[in-house]
Each structure stands twice: as structure tokens, then as C-alpha cells.
Design a protein around this nucleic acid. Structure first.
Lengths: 193, 193
DNA sequence: TACAGAGCGCAACCGCACTTGCGTTAGGCT
DNA sequence: AGCCTAACGCAAGTGCGGTTGCGCTCTGTA
């Protein structure tokens, strides 16, 4: 009794069923189309059982997305030129937002909910991206293309920000010319010389 | 009858009452706290009448925000240095997001709703900001600080993007050091020289 | 003044998120 | 084997967003 595993252990199965059902619903009908009732039915579980484990619909969706997170597994681009590497990096960021899961994750992040796991996942993803941008920049430094005293974290935010803004805010298209223009701007700066 | 003003003209009063009531509710309880019922009660109007004019709660809120939009009326900073001007510009952008109205507008923009007036308002605000950044950059060019062949629109997006991203996505603090770092990055670029 | 019809009040209704209370079942433990 | 109890099933209910149909009321116009 003193152990944490008192009572039934069917809980695990229920949890797994619900989460996969929720993810399927999410991929089929989108973030806004997911209803707790439909998830419950698809999982062969009662609505009450869902609300016992997840307090809100948002937490359920968040958990479903996080527990089946796509392994980013990005090939760090290595074209031989820092400029092209950075463009490829931004393109891969933009393309990743086409995935329903990642898009759902992004939209959840914009909502005024404090979910620790969300915060943690965002940080994890950011860290992965950080290593990529670090690799690219360091290769660029070795080639003499990139200044050695660049704050990687700041550069990451500066380059990702506009792409996020277009996707989330203005909903404008993110085409190749835009990405190239951004990277060139970041490379050369706007200062006169 | 052939005129567009057939029937009652009480409509105008109802519309105004509802919109100001909605805005008050918005300022008091926040975007998510606004309920159509409470707005109706505060406006002395029935819920049905609201739904006749605005199809959804989102459209009501959007209309309320847009019809009472804060006149931006930004003083274009003129510190004598393009760097400080740009920092001040970003700071004023960030501060504007502290306003409940502007914050509501921003959050509405991130939602998957197609509201023409929202699109239009965003464009209008962007255009106003564009003239500011253009002024700053041109003054910088005249002083020899800024390169003359900078795409103003791209520069605007590039500098605003990270600020938006922090506010909307990571919810990290936007402090003076961050803004200064961003501006310096944009000024000098990351290319080695 | 009287008509016409647009605009509003009103009530009833649906769907969904979320809650509560209680009965039931399925494990782990002695 | 048999108890204990956590976890689930179930039913009923609340509140809010959104919709519909009908009847009344007010106002511009004939």
C-alpha cells in the first residue's frame, strides 16, 4: 500500500488509448475539431475518465502532441556555404510547421495556458535547433564566412522570429526569395560601410 | 424604401452600446473572459440581437477592438543615432502590446479566423509602422549610418519578428539588453570582415 | 393618420466543455 | 481465497457559445 502502484493498473492502457485516439482525431479534423466526446468514443472510454486524467481539452491535446512528438531528426544542412545552410535551416523550420502535429504544438504555445510540459517541450526543441545553428555558424566561422563573436542564441531568435511571425500573424507566404532576403539581411546587416 | 435607411434606425444605438460594452468587458476581464451574455446585459440588449449583427463572439470582439482602435500616434524617435532610434522603435512596439486592446488584436490575429477587417487593420498598422521605420532609416542614410539599399519592408519584418515571437510564443521577457542586442545584430550582421 | 416592414425581445433549443455523485470492477495484498 | 481500494462506468446537470422561429414595436413614408 505504501507503494505508488496501489489499485488497478488498467490506467496505463486507458491513457495510451486516449492519447493515440486524440492524436488521430487531431490529424483528421484539426486542432479545433477535436472534441473530448469523440476522443472518448474512439478510445472506447468514458468522457469522465478523460477528465479525471486531463483537466481540460487543451491539456489533453497538448499531452497527445507531446507524447507522440515527431523526432525532429533534422539533417543539419551542409552545402559548403553558410548562406545556403542558413536558408535551408529556415526552410526546414517553415516546412516543419506544415506538419499538423507541429502546427498544433505551435498554436498551443500561443495560447495563454501555463503547461509545464509545453514549456519544457519548447525548450527542448529550441535546444535542438540551437545545436544546428551552432554547427552551421561554427562551420561558417572556420571558413572565415561568419564572425566568431556571434551570440548563437540571439541569432537563432532573430532569424526564426520573422518566419514565425509570417506563419502565425500575417499568414503571408514564406517563399524562397523571402528566406534568402532574410538571410542576406542577417549576414550583411543594414549598416553603411 | 429604395433608400438604404428603411425600417427602424435604432440599430445604430444598439451597435454603439454593444461595442462599447464589449470593449469595457474586454478591458475588465480580458479577452477570454468576455461572454456574449455579459456584453448583452451590460449593453441592455438581448443576446439574439448581438448574434444578428455579429456572427461569432470573435467577430464581436474584433469589431469592438477595431472600432475603438487606439490611435497609434507614435512619435517617431529621433535621438540622433539610428541605433538608438531603432531600439526605441522596438521598445514602443513591445510596450504597445501591453495595452489590452492591442494585445487582444494580436491574439485575434493568431487565430485561424478570416476576418477581412482584421486583415485590413493589420495592414493599416503595418503601413503606419512602415513609415516610421522608413523615416528612421532614411535619416540614418542621410547621416551615413545606414546602407541606402535596404529593403524597408524586410527590415521591418526582420526586427519585429523576434519581438513578436517572444511575446506570443516563448513569453520571455523583452528587456532593454535584448532589444539592443537585436538592433546591433541587424546593424552589423553576422558576416566576418 | 395609417400602413409596411425592418429591427428587436423572447423563449426554446442544440452542441460541447466541464463537474458531481454514486455504483461497479479490476487489480494488488495479506 | 478474500478483502481493500484505486480507477472506471454511468447518469445527470451546469454554463456558455451559437441558432431558430415567432411575435411585437417602432419609425419612415404614403
Amino acid at each position: 500500500m505504501s507503494s505508488a502502484t496501489a489499485g488497478h493498473r488498467r490506467g496505463k492502457a486507458v491513457r495510451d488509448n486516449v492519447l493515440t485516439a486524440a492524436l488521430n482525431e487531431l490529424l483528421n479534423v484539426g486542432v479545433d475539431g477535436v472534441t473530448v466526446a469523440s476522443v472518448a468514443e474512439a478510445a472506447g472510454v468514458h468522457v469522465t475518465s478523460i477528465y479525471r486524467r486531463w483537466r481540460t481539452r487543451e491539456q489533453l491535446i497538448t499531452d497527445a502532441v507531446l507524447s507522440h512528438l515527431d523526432p525532429l531528426a533534422i539533417e543539419v544542412p551542409d552545402t559548403g556555404s553558410a548562406r545556403d545552410d542558413l536558408i535551408a535551416l529556415l526552410r526546414s523550420l517553415d516546412e516543419s510547421m506544415s506538419s499538423p502535429q507541429n502546427w498544433a504544438l505551435l498554436r498551443l504555445a500561443t495560447m495563454p495556458i501555463e503547461i509545464d510540459r509545453l514549456e519544457e517541450a519548447r525548450r527542448r526543441i529550441t535546444d535542438e535547433r540551437m545545436t544546428e545553428v551552432a554547427t552551421i555558424l561554427e562551420r561558417g566561422v572556420a571558413r572565415g564566412e561568419i564572425s566568431p563573436d556571434v551570440d548563437h542564441r540571439l541569432a537563432l531568435e532573430a532569424m526564426y522570429g520573422p518566419v514565425y511571425a509570417r506563419r502565425l500573424l500575417t499568414h503571408e507566404e514564406v517563399d524562397e526569395a523571402y528566406l534568402a532576403g532574410l538571410v542576406d539581411l542577417f549576414l550583411d546587416g543594414i549598416r553603411a560601410r
